[in-house]
Design a protein around this nucleic acid. Structure first.
Lengths: 113, 113
DNA sequence: TTTGCATATTATGTTATACAAACTATACAG
DNA sequence: CTGTATAGTTTGTATAACATAATATGCAAA
């Protein structure tokens, strides 16, 4: 049997989709949200995050929209699409499966606290 | 704070080190052991596994040795080095941290069964 | 008021993972 | 003697994640 899509080339997209599933955000905000929501464990550099966002948008998993409030810089807000929600469900299942596999190999040593 | 070394470029090396930490194995055997020990969830194709083994050997984390039993093909048995054991401990800790981070983001939905 | 800092996005180039696929070879069963 | 499972090597490809630099704006402090 084959673990679908690479051994683990990228939890990044799932993390982004998961966070966006709770409401629209712009890139800079997202990068901070990821750090905060992961207890400062996960970090996406801008060099990773922005290209990833473009990629997810090209795949129609998220949708971007420029907004320029009078007293702030132009920001591109991303929201998850229904296609993106579908992907999120699938990828989350994959991630669960992966962690299950890892726990088998490592004898449960990776169980969360 | 920064998650040391990539977001998750490769659990493959840790998995290999972990399995080799239980005793020497040759490539083909390893590829099967990984599948079996992960409940058929994790798979490393030969195109991934063998180059990875060369790489780990070059880094002195594992050590290979040709053995040709009279009635079987030549096999290269790999065993983990003490340097490799050190790395394994470190990387396992990183992996634990990573899964902890993921569980924070996904609200514990990734906890093993 | 101009210097500098935090915000916000874009773009470029590098490294290395993981993969598929083709190739070589050998032991053994039918 | 033919096919299949085993065993390993090699090549070429896509792309993930990264660092870094370039661009630009709002705001606070000096």
């Amino acid at each position: 049997m084959k673990f679908e899509s690479q051994l683990l080339k990228g939890i990044a997209p799932v993390v982004v989709l998961e966070i966006l599933s709770r409401g629209p955000m712009y890139g800079y905000e997202l990068s901070q949200a990821i750090e905060q929501r992961s207890g400062d464990i996960l970090t996406l550099g801008k060099g990773t995050l922005y290209p990833l966002l473009y990629n997810l948008e090209a795949k129609k998993l998220i949708k971007g929209k420029w907004e320029s409030n009078k007293s702030s810089r132009k920001r591109r807000y991303y929201s998850i699409t229904s296609k993106g929600k579908g992907q999120l469900v699938k990828q989350k299942a994959q991630l669960e499966k992966l962690t299950a596999g890892l726990n088998l190999v490592f004898g449960g040593a990776l169980a969360p606290a």
